[in-house]
Simulated scan of single mutants.
Amino acid sequence: MDAAALTLHDMTAADVDEVAAIESRVQSFPWTRKNFADGLAAGYRGWVVRRMGAMLGFALVMDAPDMAHLLVIGVRPDAQRQGVGERLLRRCIDHCRQAGLPALTLEVRPSNERAIAFYRRHGFAQVGLRRGYYPATQGREDAWIMTLALAADAA
Rank of each mutant, 00 (worst) to 15 (best):
L70C: 05
H95N: 07
L70K: 06
L89N: 11
D94M: 12
F58E: 00
L89M: 14
D94P: 02
P110L: 05
H69W: 13
L101A: 08
L60I: 15
A79Y: 02
L106I: 03
I73T: 12
L60S: 03
P110N: 04
P102C: 10
A68K: 07
R81E: 03
F58A: 00
M55Y: 01
A68S: 15
Q82S: 06
H95S: 07
M67Q: 14
A54E: 11
T105A: 08
L88E: 01
A64E: 01
P77Y: 14
L70R: 11
L70W: 03
Q80R: 14
M67P: 00
E86M: 11
G100Q: 13
I73E: 06
V108Q: 08
D78W: 13
D63I: 01
L88H: 02
R109N: 04
C92E: 10
A79W: 02
G83D: 11
M55F: 01
A59Y: 02
R97S: 11
P77M: 12
A54D: 04
D78C: 04
R76I: 00
P77K: 13
R97H: 15
R87G: 01
G74E: 05
C96Y: 07
E86V: 09
M62D: 00
V108E: 07
I93P: 01
L88W: 06
V75E: 02
V84Y: 04
G74P: 01
M62W: 05
A99V: 07
R81V: 00
V84D: 00
E86I: 02
H95Q: 09
V108H: 10
E107Q: 10
A64L: 14
L104S: 04
R90D: 13
D66P: 06
H69I: 10
A103I: 09
L104C: 06
V108R: 12
V61H: 04
R76A: 15
V72D: 15
L104G: 03
R76S: 09
A103G: 06
C96G: 03
I93M: 14
H69F: 15
C96D: 01
G53H: 04
V108I: 12
A59P: 02
A54F: 00
